[in-house]
Simulated assay, not measured.
Amino acid sequence: MTLQSEPVRPASRYYFPVLKLYQRAFPKEEKVPLVWLLANSRRAGIDFLGWHDGARFVGLTFTVTTKALTYLIFLATAETVRGQGVGSAILDRLAARFDGRLLVLALEPQDDAASNVRQRRSRLAFYQRNGFVLQPYQVVDLGVAYDTMARNGRFAPAQFDALMRGYTGWFYPWYGSKILRK
C-alpha cells in the first residue's frame, strides 16, 4: 500500500470524493459545515487531509494538534476499501506524523438501545485493535455526548479544553464543547 495524504482544498483532485464521503459517513448532528473545515484547515495545527493509495481515493481525516495532543475529529474510509486495513494504516500514519503525541478521539457511547448498536461496537473494537483505550471522560460536542479514547497514554481534561479553545477561538463559549468525567 502506498498510502499518501494531501490537504483538502476546493481545487484539489480529491475534493469531490472527500465531500461525498463526508456527507455519507457522518450523521447530520455530528457534522460541521464543510466551509468551516476548509477555512480552519489553513490554520497552523489543523489538518484536513484526503488519503489516497496511488491514484485511488481511500479516505479523509480532520485533526487538531497542540504540543500535548492531537484530536482526531473525523476519520472515514471509502466504502470500497473498508475491511482492507486502510483505516488502520491511516491511524498508523497519523501516529507517526504527530510523533508520538497523544492521539485522542471521540466516538458514540456503547448503548444497547441505540439503533446502530452493532456499528458502535464495531467502531469501538476497531479503535481498540489499533491501540486506543477508553478514557474516563465524555466530551459533549454541539450538544452530543461521546466517549473518549486515546492512543499513546492518557489525557487530562485541561489539555482537551485548551485544544478546543484554540480550535474554536472566539466561538468557544457558544460552541458547546465540554469534557466531563464519566
Rank of each mutant, 00 (worst) to 15 (best):
L94V: 05
G50N: 06
D47K: 02
V64T: 06
G87H: 06
Q84W: 09
F57Y: 08
G59P: 09
L34V: 15
T77W: 01
A89W: 08
L37C: 07
G50M: 06
R93K: 11
T70G: 05
A89K: 09
T63H: 02
A96H: 09
R56E: 13
D92F: 00
P33A: 13
R24Q: 15
L37I: 03
I46E: 04
S41D: 08
G85S: 10
A95R: 09
V58L: 06
F57V: 06
V35C: 09
S88P: 02
H52K: 13
V32Y: 11
F62A: 05
G85P: 10
A76R: 10
R82N: 12
A78Q: 12
K28N: 04
L72V: 04
L49N: 12
R24H: 14
L94A: 04
S41N: 14
T77N: 02
T77S: 11
G45S: 07
G50H: 04
W51A: 14
N40L: 06
Q23E: 15
R82C: 09
L38E: 05
A55M: 05
F48V: 07
A44Y: 01
Q23M: 13
L60R: 01
T63K: 02
D53T: 09
I73V: 02
R43L: 15
T70E: 06
F62W: 09
R24A: 15
G54A: 10
H52D: 05
A25D: 01
G85T: 10
W51M: 13
G59N: 09
L60C: 01
I90Y: 01
L75V: 14
T63M: 00
I46M: 07
A39P: 01
L72G: 02
V86L: 09
T63S: 04
